[in-house]
Design a protein around this nucleic acid. Sequence first.
DNA 1: TGGGGTTCAAAGGGTTCA
DNA 2: TGAACCCTTTGAACCCCA
Lengths: 140, 140
Amino acid sequence: MPEGEEKICTVCGDRATGYHFHVMTCEGCKGFFRRSISKDVCFTCPFTRNCTITKAKRRQCQACRLQKCLAVGMRKDSKSGLGSPPSCSWCLAQGRLAGEVQGLLSPGEYLCCSLVSLGVLPTGLRHLPLMNSPAGGIPG
Amino acid sequence: MPEGEEKICTVCGDRATGYHFHVMTCEGCKGFFRRSISKDVCFTCPFTRNCTITKAKRRQCQACRLQKCLAVGMRKDSKSGLGSPPSCSWCLAQGRLAGEVQGLLSPGEYLCCSLVSLGVLPTGLRHLPLMNSPAGGIPG
DNA sequence: TGGGGTTCAAAGGGTTCA
DNA sequence: TGAACCCTTTGAACCCCA
Ligand SMILES: [Zn+2]
Ligand SMILES: [Zn+2]
Ligand SMILES: [Zn+2]
Ligand SMILES: [Zn+2]
């Protein structure tokens, strides 16, 4: 980062405070991403999963905020055996359509998550899609 | 919210207590909206669906009050919550779970709608949700 | 010194009950 | 129905180690 250059959060455009989880972000997106990957969160976009993430609106759609975090390359330091494709036994058993419902769910959203939160599936089955690196490899 | 600025309920004009469901509202409209979206309510305006909503009159027409709530942008956030019960034949056949996928879909979103748009289900089955959010994303 | 984790006051969603 | 209350999330400030 050249000095004097603006430090802009890659996720929301707020003032960034440095690199967090491999991406230049603000304190808010840093905390949001850390909380997201440390818990079994499953967010759902109330719109069409393409919300614009800005400083003012970043709180209004957690699903798209997290999606953006992942899209720009935020990830945990991959020492702990991460990077395998997202999969849980239930989704594998149901097949792509039931598990992913492509076109309906965005990356990191899985039907199993909802069924787990409804108590239908045991928590052990829940996807942990947040721990996966973007499919294209390490960006930047 | 700029400091010193009046906090007025966007729905009824009463004193607002903060942002509720993404809109500056009073406690009354907050509670009213939460109750409305957590149940399968179906209000009917006894007049011409353009009642003026004020602090004094907000209780007189629930239909127009809810309409106003939605018009000014009130909606659930992206975390799971209760939507409306399913009401199309496919959803009923699949049961609540498959039709609503609570926590995955937002109020007014149904799995059937997505499957219809994917061509899996015939169009006649599509839900016509009342609570649908604007397609473009976060308002404002 | 950079970046991950922790702290905690404020904001906002849900619940209670008169 | 809505005022009062409780609980979770947010993010600015801070701590700590490599
Ligand atoms: Zn940010
Ligand atoms: Zn969204
Ligand atoms: Zn109001
Ligand atoms: Zn009316």
